[in-house]
Each structure stands twice: as C-alpha cells, then as structure tokens.
Write a protein that binds this DNA or RNA. Structure first.
Lengths: 256, 256
DNA sequence: CGCCGATTTGACTCAGATCAAGGTTTGTGG
DNA sequence: CCACAAACCTTGATCTGAGTCAAATCGGCG
C-alpha cells in the first residue's frame, strides 16, 4: 500500500514537470529551444488533470480555443458531417499536438476525444499569441509545427484518395512504427490504443475489412496480431506493400 | 489591334498594383489590415511574371520556399507517392494561398502547377518571418490563415473518407460556387479551369465516374454542363445531395 | 483536312461494403 | 466469485458502387 501511494505521488509530480525536463521535449513544441525560451513556454502552459477514456478535450464549436500537447496516453480528433457521421482526422501520441483547427474562425472545427486515460498540456490561444509575439523563435517554431500539420494532412489525402485497403493499413502501421521509434519505444511491437472501428473510420474502410486485413497480414507472416497487440515481424515486406523497397524513408510513410 | 495592345497594357499594370488597391484584398493575406500594415506586406511581395498553363510554381523538394497568393488564373497543388502516382490536394482561385507545406522541414512537400495562364504573388519565407516578427497583427493573420488551411484539409479528409461519388462531386461544385460568390462572380455559372481527370483525381474517383456523374446531374436537371462550362440550375437539390436541406452553411461544404 | 488529347458511353469486373452470425473479452452488480 | 451484459472482434455469404477496359465522339488547332 505504501508503494502504491508513493507511485501515485511520483505520477502527480510528473504532471507538474516543466518542459525543460519533459522527456517529450524534443518531439513537442520546445524542440530546439534555449532554456530561456523554454521558461516562457512553461509559463503559459496549463497542465490539465488526467482525462479519462472517451472524455472530450474540446468539441467542434467550442470558442474556448487552445493548442494541446499530449503528455501521456493518446487522443483522437474527428470532424462531423451534416448527417451526423464522423471522420477521424488524427490519432495523437505523447508529444504530438492538436487543436490547430481552432486557429482560424472563432471556434474549434473538430473535436478531440481521449482514447484512454491520458494527460495533456494546454496552451490557451491568447497566451500562445502573446508568447509568439514576445519570442520570435517560438513564433518560428509554431510556423514549423503548423507547416508539418499541413504536410501530414496532405499525406492523409494521398492515403484516402489513392490507396487500396491493404496499402492504407500498411501505411498506418508503418506510421505508428516510426512514431514509436521517435519515442524510443519498440518500433516493431506495440499496442493499438484505438478499437478496430476507429482504425477503419480513420482509413476510410469498414471494420470488417480492417479485421480481415489484420488476419491476412498475420496469415502471410508479416505481422502478429493479438487483439490490440501488434508485432511487426517483417518490416521489409510491410514496406513493400506501399510500394517502395529502397526509398524507405519516403515522405508519404513518414507523415501518415 | 490597338485595343488588344491596350488591354495587354492594362493587365500588366494590374500586376504591379499594390495590396492596398488589389481587388482580392479582403480574401487574401491583407484581410482586415490597416494601411500601415499593408505597406509592410507590400514590401516583401515579389510579383511574379505570369506563369503559363502547366508551369510549375514550385516542386516537392524545392528548398527555395515561399508562400504564394494567386492573383489571377488558377493553380493546383499535388503530392506524389513512391509509385509515382499523384494526388491533387487543392485547387487555388484568385486570393487563395498555397505553399504552407514548406513551412516545416527545409523544402516543399507538394508541387504547384498552373491550370491556366495565371499570375501569383510570392512571399519568400524569410521575409515573411521577418514581417511577422515586426508586425504582430500580420503574425496573427498568418496564424488564422494556417488554421483555416488545417480546417479545410479536415473537410477534405471527411469528403475522401466518407462520401459517395455523387456526394463528392456535389460538395466540389458547392465549394466552387461559394468561392465564386466570395469573388463577386456568378455563383451558379462558371467555368471549370481543370480537366475532368484532375477533378477525378482530387475527389478520389475515376474520370469515367466524374463524366457519368456530370451527365446524371444534367439528366435530372440539377446542373447544365457544356464541356468546362457549369450552370447550377437547382442549388437546393444539389445541396440536398450532401444531406442538408436546412443547415445550408455547414462547415463541411464551406471548406471543401 | 486530319491528328491528338479530352470526354463520353457502354459492358463487364471486382474490391470492399453490407448483412448476418458467432465468439471473446471486459466490466459490473449481486 | 459468478453470471450476465455490453463492447469488441472475427468470419462467412452476398451485393454493389465505382473501377477498368474498350471504343466512339467531340473540339481545337496546326
């Protein structure tokens, strides 16, 4: 029991950690900043309490706009159409950002939902504007991060517009694998934090198709799947599905 | 002949017009700026000579990065996949921006090609950074414009991921119609500046499907098509295809 | 006029959706 | 600790929207 309490205490402290000693520092907003600049960023962050699975971080239409960085856990963002259907537009791992859709107009245009118990850092838009104004290098960093967002979205348009179901799933797994590697986690062995339904929605497929594709990729020994657990056994052949043997670090796979 | 020459002269002068008297002012970067601020923006613009149909404004991989605003004509942007296929990610009308994909990394990740003889204003990235630094309101405007880009891309993900062929084409026409209206051109009668092939590619369809859909929409008297000429006869029913009778100004249609 | 690229049209095919069960895991309250 | 429900996932059978293939037609333009 004492151990448990201690562990809880440690977790709590981690939530209050500054950007300077955050392990995600090089993936997140602070990448490449001086200690000086970091302090300024630190000051505008509101560290949120953990959010639970299925909690909304924000909803389309919310006028209280912020940029969010995932600290732990994972989050999905989605847009709705007039008929009430929804399209998932992103899955966000620790160190990744969401909420840029609120930078135009006066409200968010997509919603964000926690896929599991997670914690996020929140940067209110006003404070963000102010610190960008005061610190050029932060403004520069923001420009870079938004440009990345645009390029990433373009890669998704390519995926949804031109790829077969199998290519879509392969791209998805490769993208996850690369993002695992960036976080110094195993790139070939990881847990999916989202249900099949969400993967299907994100890739523009039916759940059944995703399920069958997982079965097939396992069949031919490219991956092993056990429910949410993925093990990529043959990265080479997984890559060959999206059609590049050599040019492995292609922009497309990088950014899905 | 003299008239022709005169017309050419007038065109040439228009290219040298400042942002302050540009008719696209309220659609483009300068929206809502003071005269003071406009001058600063004006100074960093490099007004390009007209580009011809099929000319590249920039290519994926170009390290010479800029933000571009279409002054006249129209431009498409596209990304390539490892197999050499391409996906068109945007069509850009006068007053619309392109090139934000270059704001991250060190090169553009998509290419831009003129659909017809066009002219564009170029904002080199370095100058843009500088003026953003000097003038907070321009930085603020840039943030807004990039946010809009992200929201627009999300709407495209919804289109590609969830819509039927007919819904896609209807959304496309409605989007064009709205953008015509913004430019004070007829919202129900306009020319497509891109071939069927490009429309098909953009919407994730086959050319034949687009052709058949145009034929069908004409059949049921929702539109009239004559080659590139479009006349929307029944906007109400066109809208009903994407599934909203009342909630007409939905974000989805707005931003495709 | 004659060629070439763009567009249309028709016939056929197929990847992936939909429909229909059945199995498994998780959580929950008694 | 068990029973039961609710998600979630898989598998099989069938259907269909849209792709593919093939061919004709149209519209400019040298």
């Amino acid at each position: 029991m004492l151990n448990m309490a201690e562990a809880t205490q440690i977790n709590f402290d981690q939530l209050k950690v500054s950007c300077a000693n955050c392990s995600l520092r090089e993936l997140c907003i602070p990448q490449g900043m001086t200690d000086e600049e970091l302090k300024l960023v630190d000051q505008i962050i509101e560290r949120k309490k953990p959010v639970h699975k299925n909690d909304y971080l924000f909803r389309a239409g919310d006028t209280n706009r912020s940029l969010y960085a995932v600290l732990s856990g994972s989050v999905k963002t989605l847009v709705d159409n007039p008929n009430g259907e929804e399209q998932i537009v992103g899955f966000h791992l620790p160190g990744e950002l969401l909420g840029m859709d609120g930078f135009s107009g006066d409200s968010h245009t997509c919603s964000a939902v926690a896929l599991e118990t997670s914690s996020v850092c929140e940067f209110p838009l006003e404070s963000l504007d102010k610190v960008c104004h005061d610190v050029p290098s932060i403004q520069y960093a923001m420009r870079r991060l938004m440009g990345k967002e645009v390029s990433k979205d373009h890669a998704m348009l390519l995926l949804l517009g031109r790829m077969s179901a199998e290519e879509k799933l392969a791209s998805f797994l490769i993208s996850l694998s690369k993002r695992m590697a960036q976080r110094h986690w195993k790139p070939t062995e990881f847990n999916l934090t989202m249900p099949r339904q969400d993967i299907a929605n994100y890739l523009g497929l039916a759940v059944e198709t995703v399920s069958r594709l997982f079965a097939h990729l396992q069949e031919v020994k490219i991956i092993e799947v056990d429910r949410r657990r993925i093990n990529i056994c043959d990265m080479e052949r997984l890559r060959s599905i999206i059609g590049d043997g050599e040019n492995v670090d292609s922009a497309a796979a990088e950014q899905v």
